[in-house]
């Protein structure tokens, strides 16, 4: 019984929040264009399910393409930075500087270069999500135990061998952990770009809905993005458990 409650506690907490929200709307009789009740949001989801579906697919598409580019690019750059001190020294300050720029500010620039729509959304998703991947992969590589390096170097191991046999496998838990952060950031990037310059995607849908004071539809957009975010997070978490079970299992034993 206790186990069953623990497994489903996230569902109960969500249900509780929705119930409180509904109660608050009813008891305080809040206007639907200020804060629509969950039931109104549900009606909106049902009523507009077709356009919502089309826009959701667009957002999912730009997010996943941007995320895929971020994974490939982040992995390669992280490896380069983690392996070669000179690359780290050369690029790290620039990367931090770049990461401090709010990506909202980049979208108009991307529109000038690539026009509105799909391309800026993909690029924004990519630009916002590659940084944690780079940092994590580089950290995994940079923290190889010195004793282990001694064992391998005393055998005449070259740097490339140490990286291949130890560095890369060792950085995989860091890599998969960063994917969980990166995928949710990628959604944010896509939606931000869509709400600034696009005529497709959940971001666009929400901006259009708020222009008509259809706040229930705006909330429906929140729900759709959140659900997609949670599903993609679970997918990356599953990949993490599957490929780096040795890292999480090791922790289980410690705790």
């Amino acid at each position: 019984m206790k186990y069953w409650i623990r497994r489903t506690v996230s569902i109960w907490a969500t249900v509780l929040c929705i119930v409180l929200w509904q109660l608050m709307c009813v008891v305080l009789s809040i206007e639907p264009f200020i804060l629509p009740s969950p039931i109104l949001v549900y009606h909106s989801l049902v009523q507009y399910h077709e356009p919502i579906m089309i826009h959701a697919m667009q957002t999912l598409f730009t997010t996943l393409v941007g995320f895929a580019i971020a994974v490939a690019f982040g992995l390669l750059l992280g490896l380069a930075i983690g392996v070669e001190r000179a690359v780290y020294d050369g690029l790290y300050p620039m990367m931090i500087a770049f990461n401090s720029i709010p990506k909202v500010a980049i979208v108009p620039l991307l529109v000038i270069w690539f026009g509105i729509g799909t391309v800026p959304a993909i690029l924004t998703a990519f630009l916002i999500s590659f940084f944690p991947i780079v940092v994590n992969v580089a950290t995994g590589l940079a923290t190889i135990e010195p004793e282990l390096q001694d064992v391998l170097r005393s055998l005449g191991a070259r740097k490339r061998q140490i990286v291949m046999r130890v560095g890369i496998p060792r950085s995989m838990p860091y890599f998969f952990a960063s994917l969980k952060v990166a995928i949710t950031l990628a959604f944010i990037g896509s939606v931000v770009s869509e709400s600034i310059a696009s005529n497709a995607g959940i971001g666009y849908l929400m901006i259009a809905a708020s222009a008509r004071f259809d706040v229930a539809l705006v909330f429906a957009g929140f729900v759709v993005i959140s659900v997609m975010g949670v599903i993609m997070y679970e997918v990356t978490a599953y990949a993490e458990r599957k490929f780096t079970f040795w890292a999480t299992r090791a922790n289980d034993i410690v705790t």
Binding site: E147, D150, S154, P169, R170, M172
Partner: peptide
């Protein structure tokens, strides 16, 4: 061959 206080085995 070398061995240290820390076994430094590869967990994977």
């Amino acid at each position: 061959g070398m061995a240290f206080q820390n076994a430094t085995l590869l967990p994977w």
